[in-house]
Design a protein around this nucleic acid. Structure first.
Lengths: 241, 241
DNA sequence: CGGCAATTTGAAGACGCTCAAGCAATGTGG
DNA sequence: CCACATTGCTTGAGCGTCTTCAAATTGCCG
């Protein structure tokens, strides 16, 4: 890893800082963090950062690109459990048993910052702000998962698809991208797996929402034509299962 | 809170220690933890430890009894996201936004140990073992949630029910109770909500498994007649949805 | 002991799945 | 550079699982 890469990867210079590290650290603290995050890694589309069973050593902040995580059960079944975009942190499933429990796979050519976890714990002792932040990031993942369970357990197909699109929209917006006009990085099958639906159902739902004039779908390109109405459909629709 | 209650609540005396705190702390460290966990609280059946929107101040270790957590969406819908038994820790959803995102409700008269979270963070700085443990407990929750998503997204009704029963069984066993013979603390409706099914479906599935001779169900009393076969049904059955 | 909650069971219907075919876009090798 | 294979997506038809609605029974809390 060249010196130039090291400079590039400095957290103190990163435009994702506010998403990744939540709030202001002092300059001295930031330079401590810089020394912690010393490696940046390129992951080609389709490649994994880690796989289920790999020894856990670090967590990863997405610098560029897009990832999915996927769990596999004993039999062949697998399910997408999350998508990650720049500024989001993945790999925390590995902490509990020092072993990862899912695969983290790049959906496009991507880059991640590698954060050695035990060093992070050490630094957290010196910087209470950092410790608090770590706890919040972990807790946010727990809250997100709870929302996911809610979706999988209580929503019908159309609602799940809408919730998925609105969630993406909001995350793009938080990154300064258009909220109502974006490209999907994942296939219909991956969306289906994530939402607990078959890919045909996802496709049909897209078509249906398009007929209603709520959406424009052209391959991977999505345009939300009436986000307000979509939101209403989420909170008003039938009680589901 | 009387002195006697304080003595009773000492972590150093607690028989759930190994489940709640994972591994050995020194005596000095244990007494630090004792001074942290200074309050024990009784929660009557049906009462909440905290509710969605409550300010987050502490996490809670179940000392005695049984709890569910439940999230509510804007519309009336609600879903059980977890059940907790003695030795398990709940409330970590509140860390991220200093606010709880679910209700924690006692399914029977219960007792919890209250662990003030910011004091826990402070102590973690002094006891690295404690910090590691906290991180593991949080991570375990993340892993558990991923398994839950897998279940909700990829399993059919019968499999979900079986997975639920086997999970309970295993947790009872870990506490020294019979693995194949236990009482459900929750209603069919709560089980259904947790599993993303209607209560009628849960009931029918119980009946069906009983006809097959795999289970004996008498109201809340469950007896697993062939745990091995049940396990097989989980890993071999159809690909589901 | 009464009233209400929880559970069981049946019958009918809906939603999403399975299977299948066709098409478009992309990539590969001759 | 074109033929061919591959992958991803759409759409249709039929079917199965789980839900919905309904009623009867049981058990428990006050």
């Amino acid at each position: 890893m060249t010196e130039i890469t090291k400079l590039q990867s400095a957290c103190s210079q990163c435009n994702l800082q506010e998403l990744c590290l939540p709030i202001g650290l002092s300059e001295a603290e930031l330079s401590l963090v810089d020394s912690l995050v010393d490696e940046r890694r390129k992951i080609a589309r389709g490649e994994a950062i880690f796989r289920s069973g790999d020894r856990f050593t670090a967590i990863y902040a997405v610098k560029l690109g897009f990832f999915k995580t996927e769990v596999l059960s004993e039999d062949g079944r697998h399910q997408v459990t999350s998508f990650y975009m720049p500024g989001e942190v993945l790999g925390m499933d590995g902490i509990s048993a020092e072993t990862h429990h899912c695969d983290a796979i790049a959906l496009e050519d991507s880059e991640v910052c590698l954060i050695p976890f035990h060093e992070l714990e050490t630094i957290s002792v010196k910087i209470p702000t950092m410790q608090r932040h770590l706890h919040r990031v972990m807790s946010r993942e727990i809250v997100r998962d709870q929302g996911m369970m809610m979706m999988l357990g209580a929503m019908r197909a159309e609602e799940r698809v809408i919730a998925f699109l609105l969630n993406l929209s909001q995350r793009y917006a938080a990154r300064g991208y258009a909220a109502a006009d974006f490209n999907l990085r994942m296939t219909r099958e991956e969306i289906g797996s994530y939402l607990g639906l078959k890919l045909e159902t996802v496709s049909r739902t897209f078509s249906h929402l398009q007929e209603e004039g709520l959406l424009q779908v052209e391959k991977k390109h999505i345009r939300l034509m009436d986000a307000a109405k979509l939101k209403k459909m989420l909170s008003q629709e039938g009680i589901g299962r």
